[in-house]
């Protein structure tokens, strides 16, 4: 396989802005002369359902779908969704997941019937995921997005965190340019801030477990 390939399985709940992320990454690739393709979901599933985007970077990549066991990383904008697609993660792959859980209506409906039932939370998800990889970073993206100035930038916070990965082949300045081009003018500032804050957050939660780019702490060995 050619070097510098990178496949990330991005997932979340309809309405969380996954398509913006794949557009930003893809446009950043176009700006830097790299090849990128995606397999996206539009249509019915966007109605508060589970959604996913297969994002693939590399000159020989042809399939818009990542094969099972083929994702270098899972980027989950919602915690339960990280678990839903775990079969796509390659052995030793990285999971960058939002700590936020959006409780599915089916689960809530069952809790009305069963008083002892408790929601599945991010900790349970993490414990389960630990059985397939030890590289899991949990990010409080909503908290950070609020600090950046807009709760809706949760997705860009997550992108910021992932972009620190050494394996993520797209240059920072291209990603920042693509954010500028891809979001409404009046939201550029807050999105760039969210992106930076996501990167800073990765210091403590991601770069201590996997190799990050120069300028970020070396991984513990």
């Amino acid at each position: 396989m050619a070097d510098k390939e990178f496949s990330v399985y991005m997932c979340g709940v309809g309405g969380q802005g996954l398509v913006l992320l794949s557009n930003v990454i893809g446009s950043a690739c176009a700006l830097s002369g790299m090849r990128a393709i995606t397999g996206e979901q539009h249509g019915l599933s966007q109605r508060s359902g589970s959604i996913n985007i297969h994002m693939r970077i590399g000159k020989d990549v042809r399939s818009p779908l990542i094969p099972i066991g083929g994702a270098d990383a899972i980027l989950a904008l919602e915690a339960l969704e990280a678990l839903r697609y775990v079969e796509y993660l390659r052995p030793g792959g990285v999971v960058v997941m939002n700590s936020r859980v959006q409780h599915p209506i089916i689960e809530t409906g069952e809790h009305v019937k069963d008083k002892s039932a408790r929601y599945m939370d991010a900790e349970v998800v993490k414990t389960r995921l630990l059985q397939v990889t030890d590289k899991i970073a949990t990010i409080d993206a909503l908290g950070i997005a609020r600090k950046a100035g807009n709760a809706l930038t949760e997705n860009v916070v997550m992108l910021g965190a992932m972009s620190t990965l050494d394996a993520f082949p797209v240059p920072d300045d291209a990603v920042e340019q693509a954010i500028k081009d891809g979001v409404p003018k009046k939201a550029v500032e807050v999105n760039l801030k969210a992106f930076k804050m996501g990167r800073q957050e990765a210091h403590g939660s991601l770069c201590n477990i996997v190799k990050c780019r120069k300028g970020f702490p070396e991984p513990m060995t």
Binding site: V13, G14, G15, L44, S45, Q46, R47, S48, G49, S50, L80, E81, L83, R84, H103, P104, I105, I106, E107, E110, M120
Partner: peptide
């Protein structure tokens, strides 16, 4: 893991 089918917004 609970299902999350599409539903009304």
């Amino acid at each position: 893991l609970p299902d999350r089918w599409p539903t009304f917004c």
